[in-house]
Amino acid sequence: MMVAGTVTVDTALRLESVSKVYGSGANAVTALDGVTVGLRRGAFTAVMGPSGSGKSTFLHCAAGLDRPTSGRVLLGGTDLAGMSENALTELRRQRIGFVFQAYNLIPSLTVEQNITLPLRFAGVKPDQGWLREIVERVGIGNRLGHRPAELSGGQQQRVAIARALVTRPEVLLADEPTGALDTRTGRQVLELLRGLVDTVGQTVLMVTHDPIAASFAHSVVFLADGRLAGELHQPTPNEIVRRLTGLGEW
């Protein structure tokens, strides 16, 4: 993870002086205030901060779901500013993977159909070799014919991760991916995400409120009042809690 500095070929995603203001006049709320962050390709970065610190807005701007009021967002060498909504939709479909706290699986579809859904939307046939690899990596190779209701919460989240990976995205964005899971299952999902980073070089950006979850990342970026408030490399849960305490979170 890099804060400020110049763009390099190792930067998968970069926010440059990004500000986001909602409303106007006396009702204006600044959710992000001049944030510059570069995410190193093939690294696992967590974003943390108190409630209202701008974490969700950061993620939405990074994903092209929300347009910055000022500044710019770069996915690889692509500047998202000025892109039409249709072009942004296509970019998200092809180059960004999403994992949420809610698994967002379609109950009537099988596991395999849920995983390959983004490809069907794009009119692309699945790469069977890559599909086999990702379902084995996430540990659901023997569940492809099941429906979501037949799976545990942890298994459903693994399906959601496989679905996010099926398009070979440049960046995987995870929003509280273990928030609905028990501690043991959540740890398994985090180990899976870190394993994808370490073995296949997947770039992962995760928003979380959980210091233990954040400790699986290579680095943690802290936000407070919409601004950068520090960074930890190779963080431990205790170090993260101490930093959050200083931000008024704990």
Rank of each mutant, 00 (worst) to 15 (best):
A213Y: 10
V135S: 06
R187W: 01
L173Q: 06
R158G: 10
G201W: 07
L190A: 15
A160L: 12
A160R: 15
I134E: 02
T183D: 04
V138K: 08
T203R: 09
A180V: 07
S215R: 05
L205M: 14
Q155P: 05
D198L: 14
E170F: 00
Q202E: 04
P148M: 12
A217T: 13
A217N: 11
P169K: 10
L181W: 10
Q188Y: 04
L193W: 15
S152K: 07
R194M: 02
M206S: 08
D175I: 14
L190E: 03
L173P: 11
L181Q: 11
G153N: 11
I140T: 01
E191Y: 00
G153Y: 04
E170R: 12
V189D: 09
V207M: 03
E191V: 00
V207P: 10
P169I: 11
V166G: 05
D198P: 02
R143P: 01
V171H: 02
G186L: 15
G179D: 07
A162C: 06
T199S: 15
I161N: 09
A180F: 00
G153V: 15
V220A: 12
M206Y: 11
G153S: 12
V204T: 08
E133A: 06
I140Y: 01
L144P: 07
E150H: 11
G201D: 04
V138A: 05
Q157G: 08
T203Y: 03
L173G: 08
H218N: 13
L181A: 07
T167R: 15
L192A: 09
A174H: 11
Q202I: 05
I134P: 02
G186A: 10
G186Y: 08
E170V: 02
R194Q: 15
D182F: 06
E136A: 14
T208A: 14
D182R: 09
V204L: 13
H218L: 03
I134D: 00
L205Y: 03
Q156W: 01
G179V: 15
L165M: 13
R163A: 05
A213L: 12
A213I: 08
R137V: 01
